[in-house]
Nucleic acid binder design. Sequence first.
DNA 1: ATTGGTGCAAATGCTTTGCATAAAG
DNA 2: CTTTATGCAAAGCATTTGCACCAAT
Lengths: 134, 134
Amino acid sequence: MLRMTNQREVIIEELKRLNSHPTADELYEIVRKRLPHISLATVYRNLEQLSEAGIIKKLEYPGRQKRFDGNTSEHSHIKCIKCGRIADVAVKPRSDLKDMIDDAMGFKVLEAKIDFTGLCPECQRGMQLEGLRG
Amino acid sequence: MLRMTNQREVIIEELKRLNSHPTADELYEIVRKRLPHISLATVYRNLEQLSEAGIIKKLEYPGRQKRFDGNTSEHSHIKCIKCGRIADVAVKPRSDLKDMIDDAMGFKVLEAKIDFTGLCPECQRGMQLEGLRG
DNA sequence: ATTGGTGCAAATGCTTTGCATAAAG
DNA sequence: CTTTATGCAAAGCATTTGCACCAAT
C-alpha cells in the first residue's frame, strides 16, 4: 500500500494547488522549494503511482513530455501546438462517441475522446508579432 | 527541394505498399532488405521530411514510438493499448467536432479529432488466455 | 521488524545531430 | 559546381532502474 511520506505529501499538495498542468520537471522545481533534497526520480515515481491510484491524472499527449493534473474530475483539454501548454476545456453534452465507429477492424473500443489542439492566447500574440517582423 | 535518392524512393515504396503503420525501426528493417547499408538516421530523416511534404503521414500518439502511414487520405485510427498496433477505422459522418467546445479559454482551435483506443483482436485473445491461466 | 520509499547515478529507448563523404540537379 | 542527402557515431532528452540506505507502519 502507498505510504504517506513527506515527499509524496508535498507533491500532491503542490499539484492540487496548481491549476496548470505541469510536466514532471516543472513540478520538481516547485516541490524543490519546500524539499531542496528531493530527487527528480522521486517525483517521477510518485506521479506514476499517484496516477495509477487515481489521486491525480496523467495527461499523455503526443510530443515530448507528459503532463499531470491535480484535478481528477472529468474534463477535456486543449493543447497548444506551439508551446505545449494545456488548458481545460468545457465541452457540450454529446452522444456517445463510441457509436461513431462503423468498423473498428475487430478492435474492442475502450475509449473515445476528442483531442483538441490549437494555439494558446500567448502564442497567438507571438505569431502576430512574427508576422509584423517578417 | 527534395531530391529523389535511392533510399528515399525505397522508403516511400515500402511504406506505401504496407497497409500497416510501422515505426521508424520497423520500416528500417524492411527497407534494409533492399538497401543493406542504409542508416536508421536516414530513415528517420526521410520520414520526417516526407511527412512535412505531405507525401506520407506521421501518427503521433502518446506512448513510445511514432508510427507512419503511407495512406494520406482522411481516415481515423484506433490504437491498441497493449501492443501499440494501429488500425484504420471507418467513422460515420459527424457534425463539426469543433462546435462541441463551449469555452476554449482563449485558445484558437485548429484541430479536433476523435482519439480511439482499444484492444486489437490479437491482444483480446492474449488476455483471454491469461484469464484462463491466472 | 518488515515493507515500501528515497537519492543518486547510471542505464534506457527513441530520436536527433555533427561531420566528413557522396550523389543529385 | 552547389546544394542536399547519406552513414556513422555521438549526443540529446525524457524517463526508468539498480542499489544501498532510510523511514513509515
